[in-house]
């Protein structure tokens, strides 16, 4: 069997989704953002929703998401994506509307918008990239930073008396009447990536069928901010993030 025999369109089993264009992504090598972008592109393509999806970008490293996925996007002010998505979904109820937000965006500056959109049960999907840090601005402490974890603004590690405790937004969201599907996933290996894909697909379907707000937290790495290699960052995440942010579905009212 020669190489030429194998490299043939009919033998193609994996490629970058076509909805993800060829613009080089500005993310650091190995950043989880790229991985989740790829999944979002695959899902929208598979759902044949390319022309009927509106994504809301955050402020944070994913601020340029609109450059990479060829769907309609709106760039919201920092933390205001759920408010923006509320308006969009109410005006275009037949559209798939989702926000894509970091932890600084979703769990800090936008806390009010996040909680109230979910409490109102807006028919939107929220993808929440929790890398426990403000990646874009240089790795400052976020509400999600783990106890003892060192960042640019807590160089001796996060301490409860000074900084309070890491905020579990996802568990909090599960207590709100308006939410229908709440899950926490990750993208550090093939099995985890496949589970995250299923979760985001379900959240997107919930937006279309109007079941309420869905939240998919993706426990992620910021290897640059954590000052680790991408492979080390995944290991560090497994050892340190997963015990505090355990993976799995937390709420699903769509089964009933």
């Amino acid at each position: 069997m020669t190489k030429e025999n194998i490299i043939n369109p009919q033998n193609l089993v994996y490629k970058k989704p076509s909805l993800m264009n060829n613009t080089p992504m500005h993310y650091c090598p190995g950043c989880s953002h790229g991985m989740v972008h790829k999944l979002v592109a695959e899902i929208i393509e598979e759902m044949e929703m390319t022309d009927n999806t509106i994504g809301i970008c955050p402020v944070g490293c994913a601020v340029f998401a609109y450059n990479y996925l060829d769907i309609d996007w709106i760039e919201a002010a920092h933390g205001r994506a759920p408010a923006c998505a509320t308006a969009v979904k109410r005006l275009w109820p037949d559209h798939l509307v989702f926000t894509y937000q970091g932890d600084g965006d979703f769990a800090c500056i936008g806390t009010a918008e996040s909680i109230h959109a979910m409490n109102r049960g807006e028919n939107i999907a929220i993808i929440f990239i929790n890398n426990a840090i403000y990646g874009m601005t240089g790795g400052q402490m976020a509400p999600t930073t783990l106890m003892g974890m060192k960042t640019a603004t807590c160089p001796y590690g996060r301490q409860a008396d000074l900084h309070g405790y890491p905020l579990k937004m996802t568990e909090l969201a599960a207590n709100l009447e308006g939410t229908c599907y709440i899950t926490r996933q990750s993208v550090h290996n093939v099995a985890a990536i496949n589970r995250t894909k299923k979760a985001i697909r379900k959240a997107f379907e919930n937006s279309l069928t109007g079941k309420g707000t869905s939240l998919v937290e993706v426990v992620s790495t910021c290897n640059a901010g954590w000052k680790l290699t991408p492979v080390q960052a995944n290991k560090w995440m497994e050892e340190n993030m997963f015990p505090y942010y355990p993976l799995g579905d937390i709420k699903d009212t769509t089964k009933e």
């Binding site: 069997m1 989880s32 790229g34 290996n189």
Partner: peptide, 26 residues
Amino acid sequence: SELCNGCTSCGIVCPDGCITVYRKKW
């Protein structure tokens, strides 16, 4: 490449979508 079975793992984990995988059975 003779050891590759086209499992697609490398492609799936690439955050930048740089890898295309081909697999042939015969």
